[in-house]
Design a protein around this nucleic acid. Structure first.
Lengths: 165, 165
DNA sequence: GTCTTCTTGCAACATTGTAGCATTAGGCCT
DNA sequence: AGGCCTAATGCTACAATGTTGCAAGAAGAC
């Protein structure tokens, strides 16, 4: 499961890769005892392949333009299921909406960078949030979320078109 | 509606404290060139005094039970103004809603703990999010948000009544 | 091919936040 | 103290993001 390449970089792929991904997604879903539906398949593949965490909205758009029409609710439920099964992770985007990313290695964690200008979120490999030390008595930490805020490279370059907030 | 606990901890205070806090809040607002309205006054005092970040909802409830009725929108705008003026800070609660905390020292930053069971958020003094190092080229970090997730002391103690998720 | 039950799709609703605009009131000036 | 100007307020409407309930459809076991 641990690939030699950077986990979320969109690299050039061959048709073989596509087949592999497809099979993999199908098997991972089936292995959890869930039914392999086109929604789950398409979403999981998209998340596995995605270079950064995607919002529900982005996923919906991508599905639509891929010719796979879906109800909003169905998509929510598919995402919920994937998260529940540990195949995807839900992270809090800077805005109100959740973002979702594929999980390859359940143990692997990383921080995220949120561009306050265009709203984009990118993964920061190699920057693991340090677990807490000085906690009040009785508190149990299960995970840590580290989000860096600022301006991404694209927005910093100047006056490109920007989706405002 | 809001949490079952008291919205912000009402510790024993003297009348002098009240006067001091009141004056301070009033002056801080006026110093920013804003009008001192009962909404801003009440909200800022509540935030300054609060022991943990409060949601819009909690603040609204507290205001209502303090006999200061307010429109939802007015409260949003008062909070926005306080954040804009650097008197309050907006942090992303685990849920969709923002939470707000008073700012005493603009330079002082701290992490937060979010209880995934009851939704409560507490401040973790002494745990400053480490600024990023290994960022891609062209990225500029302005601030870091570190949120620890897990179970708070109250929820960990067992089967007290809990607002589920 | 049939059957069971998990998923989907629809409609309705809940929560959280914003926009526009007429009305109120803070605070400066006289 | 009274008047005036304009920042704040309080509506009402609307937008964005999720959730719930339930009938209809499809995945997969037999």
């Amino acid at each position: 499961m641990a690939s030699p390449q950077p986990p979320y970089r969109a690299s050039a792929r061959s048709a073989d890769d596509d087949v592999l991904r497809h099979v993999s997604a199908r098997e991972r879903i089936a292995a959890r005892g869930g039914r392999v539906t086109r929604t789950r398949l398409a979403v999981l593949e998209m998340l596995q392949h995605g270079s950064h965490p995607l919002s529900h909205d982005e996923i919906g758009d991508a599905l639509a333009s891929a010719g796979v029409a879906h109800d909003r609710v169905t998509l929510y439920r598919a995402l919920d299921w994937l998260v529940e099964q540990g195949l995807a992770r839900r992270i809090a985007g800077g805005e109100r909406a959740w973002r979702f990313e594929g999980v390859r290695d359940a143990a692997h964690r990383h921080a995220h960078f949120h561009c306050d200008r265009c709203g984009q979120v990118v993964c920061l490999e190699g920057l693991e949030p340090a677990p807490a030390t000085a906690l009040p008595n009785g508190f149990q930490v299960e995970r840590a979320e580290l989000v860096l805020h600022g301006q991404c490279a694209t927005c910093g370059r100047g006056d490109e078109e920007v989706r405002p907030r």
